[in-house]
Design a protein around this nucleic acid. Sequence first.
DNA 1: GTCTATATCGGGATAGAC
DNA 2: GTCTATCCCGATATAGAC
Lengths: 206, 206
Amino acid sequence: MSEMAEKNSNTEQNILEAAKVVFVAKGMDGARMQEIADKAGINKALLHYYFRSKDKLFEAVFVEILSKLIPDISELLLSELPLFEKIRKFTQHYIDTIRENPLIPVFILHELNREPEGIARTFKSMGIQPQIFIDEIKREIEKGTIVPIDPLHLIVNLLSMCIFPIVAQPIMQHLIFEENGEAYSAFLEQRKKEVPEFIINSIRKK
Amino acid sequence: MSEMAEKNSNTEQNILEAAKVVFVAKGMDGARMQEIADKAGINKALLHYYFRSKDKLFEAVFVEILSKLIPDISELLLSELPLFEKIRKFTQHYIDTIRENPLIPVFILHELNREPEGIARTFKSMGIQPQIFIDEIKREIEKGTIVPIDPLHLIVNLLSMCIFPIVAQPIMQHLIFEENGEAYSAFLEQRKKEVPEFIINSIRKK
DNA sequence: GTCTATATCGGGATAGAC
DNA sequence: GTCTATCCCGATATAGAC
């Protein structure tokens, strides 16, 4: 049992890894089962042996991506740090996380646009709980440490300034650095300090 | 000449309109020539008569989208308003613009990821000039009306907070409003005031 | 479990009539 | 310019041997 099972799950994991790379880069429609097989070091038939169809394989990849991503977001927001410190930590951690897989956000959004109903079902099955962070912001407003602000806008601002510059790198890089990837990389690194200070500067009561 | 030519250019325009809708919603790979033909009220053969291939048709659509989008961005940033006023006007105008075609940013980013070289060429042929706006920000810093800040980060922050919440609507809506589209729409409307005040609050020297 | 060979089909592209 | 009919390839999926 052990050797077979091990080989089995290794192959399955190889396939999932390969599929993830190809699907994320090309999207569901652009991905080719042949390319996934090549990258996994096997052949097409075996893909269908493990996952009955391309749809099923895609679904498996999509679920895996989401289920890794979502806990990651929640975790830090619910930690016990003071608000400003939490904003700094979150920004740094989150920018790094997305830079490791910069294609994933656009991949998710593209697939959501392509097939709103089907994918949304997958999405809904995983709960996210921003309420606790919202309450924390409200308490800080009452305490008078920050100015009155709608917590939702604050959260969305934070996420926007972290995620967008990374997913829009192909455009932004050209726009401001003339295709200089090194420079843009340094720019993103700076943002780990610039963004939290920009936010805190806006909401801190003086 | 007149009737034929008119009918010609009408059909061509119909095709481009239909192709734009389908390509933007499904992406190059997911789009079907049949669906484009149906939407344009013609048949597949005629698509190939006007545009030799799917690739050529896509290229035409992509160029049209970019050439409408880019002047729109530049225009307002270069107007003669005072900085804070310009930020307010830009935010309002830009959020509205993107809400009219919310799928386009993700479409562009997805296609840039899919085929970085080919598409980038198209992109480069249209110049954007952020330098003048950068200089304006620097002058305001020297005058002491705003705090010292890297103009590039300020611009990227501004764009991020305008664009991201709209393109990420399928996720954000679920995250904070439980699929209530009306509520999210109102939320975006609020942002036309919230975002500029958030920015100005951060950079204004007190 | 993994392979080779093949069936099947969808969709881009072309031929040719009108 | 616009249509119908058809070609043809690429890609998913299956059959069957090892």
